[in-house]
Design a protein around this nucleic acid. Structure first.
Lengths: 148, 148
DNA sequence: AATTAATACTTGCAAAAATCAAGTTTTATT
DNA sequence: AATAAAACTTGATTTTTGCAAGTATTAATT
């Protein structure tokens, strides 16, 4: 098999489907993008809007509105930065942190299930390979300029 | 590193970015979804609408309109099936086939560039790993029901 | 110190995409 | 024959997205 694109595409599609309907937390419906935003905020310590928008490669205007709805949902807070008044700093609420955790656990469970179809050796090698691949992508000139 | 989700997510995001602005063929702007449709039609022999819509996990009504614009762009033809008159059969026009090829080559070039940051051994192992992973996903119960 | 330029963000508008419900035509089932 | 199901289309609505323009604040330039 020499068709890399095919490999990538079906993997990406499958991961997307896995993510798709993952995001019911209690009685709250959380969309795919929203789950990504929660994830990125959780990963960082009080990031700015820009920071997260960049990480997600989303237009800031789009992101601004997405944050607005997350605030309405009581999952995120946005407070003006002390140091620089242009900047707003994002944080998860308790509810938001909870949601992020539930989603994270759900996805990890799914991924574990997938990896359970591999033996110990394969599992190891696949994980290492993905890291290698990510590093290679990070080095690439054609790939992913707007990423950290 | 034990965070599989992180690995997947950044890989998926990067591949998405790579795909994103890949799709100028001559003076024709081809969107990401459109390139996926061309790809799926190209891969199959005269598929039905359903077949491709399923492969892309898209709603048939959305897909119907997408095909309409591809027909207007002269990239795809849609002809009624002989066997079953409910079914329409899709095919790439010469222009569509050309576009699909150009896009495919562009993406393969990008992927090759990425893989060039790995040595021969790593390259081999990464490709094999991706195949393993795809197979594991295909076996999974949680992943990807609508995929063949 | 004053202007100019740049950064961080919001809002309006318009285009693209997705979803839901209803309708048509043809084939399968009972 | 009658009913149900499948494959598709269209209409109406909503969601998502991106661009352009605007505001407020900070940094750079002269």
């Amino acid at each position: 098999m020499e068709n890399k694109r095919e490999l990538f595409q079906s993997m990406v599609k499958r991961f997307g489907l896995l993510n798709k309907n993952c995001c019911m937390v209690g009685d709250m419906e959380i969309s795919l993008v929203q789950s990504h935003i929660l994830y990125e905020i959780d990963k960082r310590q009080t990031p700015s809007m820009q920071e997260v928008a960049d990480a997600l490669a989303t237009d800031l205007s789009t992101f601004s509105r997405q944050i607005q709805t997350l605030i309405k949902m009581n999952l995120v807070t946005k407070s003006p930065s002390e140091a620089d008044k242009r900047i707003y700093v994002l944080q998860l609420t308790t509810e938001g942190k909870f949601a992020a955790t539930v989603i994270q656990e759900g996805i990890e469970t799914h991924l574990d299930e997938i990896f359970s179809h591999l033996n110990e050796f394969e599992r190891e090698i696949v994980l290492q390979s993905m890291q290698l691949l990510n590093q290679a992508m990070a080095k690439s000139t054609v790939c992913c300029k707007p990423m950290f």
